[in-house]
Write a protein that binds this DNA or RNA. Structure first.
Lengths: 361, 361
DNA sequence: ATGAAAGCGCTAACAT
DNA sequence: ATGTTAGCGCTTTCAT
């Protein structure tokens, strides 16, 4: 048996409470829910009985009647990895504060599993679904005309009418660029991930745009490669060769930045004195383990999750698309990007790797 | 509305199916569940109608009747961090394969939130709870005499009668030691995390025991410090000073190992030629980013999660404590350790950092 | 072979 | 102020 040692053998029903309080079931229900009018004495008697018996209303029965389940599904293709976790936590934060519980589903990026899970979630009558991923690349939606609202977080549906919440890669790149310019750097290189990643392209574009505004362009070519430390090490050498006078490197990820930092050190360039370094992700174990600790762009993943959850809640409450209305004008700067895409601004976390030289004040 | 464009406005009930197939509700139910005997033609008609209407049985109603919910709760204090994620995935793996869905709850190591979540899970009539954490230290249980079985994974309840599944830190330390011995190393140092962590003490103990079996002891003192790269860098210097002839270092974590690797390189010691290096965790971004890539102990976290889930399922099915029976003999080597504690063996992942010197074959 | 009816635990009308 | 009743969607006897 589950709990042989005095555990609650059988769940206590409202019927038991009513019997114990010597009232009818209906009266017990009213007392417990504070509805209707009744003698205070009666109400207290019921409440006391419920308390004593350890009564918990059965949410299945309540839900069956109300036609609601107070649950949502969280589907990730990222195996709850580094990117989807913070998103999840933000979402759970916003949802759990209410009475919504979250079903977790890991699809491992397998469309079959995804379909399977979505089916199961719908069968369970979740009231909404949040889809997260590790890439911001548009992906096919999880289904058309689903009976519940769906929000894509940290990933994006190919269907522009779907609601997606994504990080501001371009803004993050611009942020890094302006910070480096502000600290007096002008020969800024860029080592980043594969060109096929939208995120890499956007970060590079943000950098270039911000530099152009200052009449500059990236030092050397923008170096697209891999999302790895190893590539960071190689890329730094390529960059040093192409632009020996480089005085700052913006990296597409913190991992790349670590590799770059290592090569710079080995080539006798001091960070930040000779070359300033900015990473991307604010992945703390990486950014803090780097020598020196890394200034890096933070995508505010938690905020993405919270926003996704709030959009979902709004859609569920029937406030419907209210939160998103007016976002179809295609405006780009205001944090919204046509369709249902919402862009969450990135922030910059300042650490040693871009500290201004002491002599510079 | 949720889906204005032709979405499923209202869930299809078995009543609708029955009507469409021109049979009674009872017959429809039987047809859908393959129970009772009936004309094949009737069954087909019902199935076709269900298919056409997109019927999904309402699990709330089914559960209400069956007295089951086919859900379990997953409670973590680790904010679904690096350690609990793989455990979670393993658990979800084992559970999701059945028809069990998982509610996720992040307590942020806050007892108030934890209590709150456990209450909510019980109110939802989950059939079991898995508790995960970031530390293996025994912790107070989530409650006594709960109406459902509870399994602690990657953490441990102070109540010895609770079921806990934990990694084999001691065995992992011994594994590392034997591997280093096998590759011909004899002056083996150890740099690890804070002494207050059971995991650090156990890994150190495993190392010492295995070395003792070969008539050796750790080179220099066992260096307890922090779980950080920075400490790895410092610790390596301390070790090189205390035991200049050290020819291998076993580290309490991959992060520490990276720090150690850096210092070794800077002090002119080649890895693995002069000094072999073994980490702990098999945290791939760290272990692969290290130069050279790190041989490291893998705690098989996924297996811990799967095992936890299987224990839970067994307990739920009423097979009850079967899986654990006979484990109260206090035997240590067999993977079981008195009470309800199950220890999952660790493995070793071989990479460059312990490659045998070329001349050695 | 099929249908009718009861009931899972609960809430909300309605009746007393 | 309290009790009675119907019904949420489903399964399962028990009649037919």
């Amino acid at each position: 048996m589950a709990s042989p040692s005095g555990g609650i053998a059988k769940a206590v029903t409202i019927r038991d409470v009513a019997a114990a309080a010597e009232v009818s079931i209906g009266t017990a229900s009213k007392a417990l829910n504070g509805r209707g009018r009744m003698r205070a004495e009666t109400r207290d008697r019921v409440l006391a009985a419920a308390e004593r018996l350890g009564f918990r209303p059965n949410p299945l029965a309540q839900g069956l009647l109300a036609g609601r389940t107070y649950t949502v599904g969280l589907v990730t293709g990222d195996s709850f990895g580094r990117f989807s976790i913070p998103v999840m936590l933000g979402a759970e934060d916003a949802l759990g504060a209410g009475q919504i519980s979250v079903f977790m589903c890991d699809t491992r990026d397998d469309p079959i599993r995804e379909r399977h899970y979505v089916e199961r979630l719908l069968a369970r009558r979740v009231e909404g679904i949040i889809v997260t991923g590790r890439r911001t690349e548009p992906r096919p939606g999880i289904g058309r005309d689903l009976p519940v609202p769906v929000v894509y977080a940290m990933t994006q549906s190919t269907d522009e009418s779907d609601v997606s919440i994504i990080p501001d890669d371009e803004g993050g790149g611009a942020l890094a660029a302006r910070h480096l310019l502000a600290t007096g750097r002008t020969r800024i290189g860029h080592v980043t991930g594969p060109h096929r990643f939208q995120a890499a392209r956007r970060r590079a574009h943000g950098l270039s745009t911000a530099l152009a505004a200052a009449g500059l362009e990236p030092a050397g070519e923008v170096l697209f490669g891999q999302w790895s430390e190893e590539w960071g090490r190689q890329g730094a050498d390529v960059l040093l060769h192409a632009a020996p006078d480089v005085d700052a490197v913006f990296c597409g990820s913190d991992q790349i930045a670590r590799g770059v930092a290592e090569t710079l050190r080995e080539r006798g360039r001091r960070v930040p004195e000779d070359v300033a370094l900015v990473g991307f992700d604010n992945w703390e174990p990486m950014a803090l383990g780097c020598r020196p600790p890394l200034t890096t762009v933070d995508m505010n993943l938690g905020e993405i999750g919270r926003l996704a959850a709030r959009h979902l809640l709004a859609a569920i409450s029937g406030t419907g698309d209210g939160l998103l209305s007016g976002s179809l004008d295609g405006s780009f700067g205001g944090g919204t990007l046509g369709g249902g895409v919402t862009i969450v601004p990135a922030g910059l976390v300042l650490r040693e790797s871009t500290r201004r030289a002491v002599r510079g004040g």
